[in-house]
């Protein structure tokens, strides 16, 4: 199983690169419906392949594959891919995938290049609840990162239209309002995922009498994006301000994610 996990981990960056190239093709030229369908299917296959790789690693190591920065980075790439897949399905727009998948490609290349198998089996990380808690937690942060990536695309597009540079990029990307909706969808998915992760974490901490300290930083992220989505809904923010706020919040979230990982590591004595 470890061999399979290593093989898949080695192949994943290439698979990400292939799918990214397909999405770059969508942005670069007028593509047929068949090409669009192929790109979407390739993305779905990539998500399945990455899931398989993570599964193999979980079986090989007999634990949740989320110890250490590199495992986290790989899972983050997987979650970004899945979130983009869902948002693409919801809105029907594929071209922003070049940004989201670009981020996932970079993350997975880093993970595949450096990760090892130094952390072996750990009884505490075997239960399914741990898998679920960790997976949903990373899914939450991935949602925020994907939402921020879309927000950056929004800002680029906003600038293009505002300065009347009506070029290729302008033609291929979704309309501004759709771009904002994609960002909001990704943030909402992230918030839902993180809510579930925090709830599971709190329930386990309460049942097993554990210190819920690692959940604090996730709670701060949750509050940050919850407030952003709430304000965006109640007090309508301009699309440009919402996008800028989402991008800034994602930077803060990245710092909080590193800190959360540190707290989890300290908590587990790793």
């Amino acid at each position: 199983m470890e061999q399979a996990a290593r093989l898949l981990a080695g192949f994943l960056p290439a698979a990400y690169a292939i799918v990214w190239c397909l999405y770059a093709g969508l942005l670069a030229g007028d593509c047929s419906a068949a090409f669009k369908k192929t790109a979407f299917r390739a993305l779905a296959a990539l998500a399945a392949l990455h899931f398989l790789a993570l599964g193999c690693r979980a079986v090989a190591l007999d634990r949740c594959p989320l110890i250490g920065g590199l495992e986290l980075v790989s899972f983050l790439a997987f979650a970004i891919t899945v979130i983009h897949l869902i948002v693409e399905r919801l809105t029907g727009y594929q071209t922003p995938g070049i940004a989201a998948l670009g981020l996932a490609l970079v993350l997975q290349t880093i993970a595949s290049s450096f990760w090892g198998y130094e952390h072996g089996a750990d009884q505490r990380l075997r239960p399914w609840a741990v898998h679920l808690h960790a997976g949903l937690g990373i899914g939450g942060h991935a949602g925020f990162l994907t939402g921020a990536t879309y927000a950056l695309v929004y800002l680029t597009l906003y600038r293009q239209i505002k300065t009347r540079r009506l070029g290729r990029l302008w033609e291929r990307l979704p309309p501004l309002e759709t771009m904002q909706r994609m960002s909001v969808w990704a943030l909402r998915l992230g918030l839902c995922s993180l809510t579930a992760a925090i709830a599971i974490g709190l329930a386990r901490a309460w049942r097993d009498g554990l210190n819920p300290q690692p959940l604090w930083t996730s709670g701060v992220s949750w509050l940050l994006f919850g407030a952003l989505l709430g304000i965006g809904r109640r007090l309508p923010l301009s699309g440009m301000r919402f996008a800028a706020a989402a991008a800034c919040a994602a930077l803060v979230d990245l710092v909080l994610l590193v800190f959360t990982e540190y707290l989890h590591g300290r908590h587990l004595g790793l």
């Binding site: 239209i161 009506l166 302008w170 979704p174 309309p175 501004l176 309002e177 759709t178």
Partner: peptide
């Protein structure tokens, strides 16, 4: 077209 690029 121009309107569509903004409001969808």
């Amino acid at each position: 077209l121009l309107a569509g690029r903004v409001v969808g």
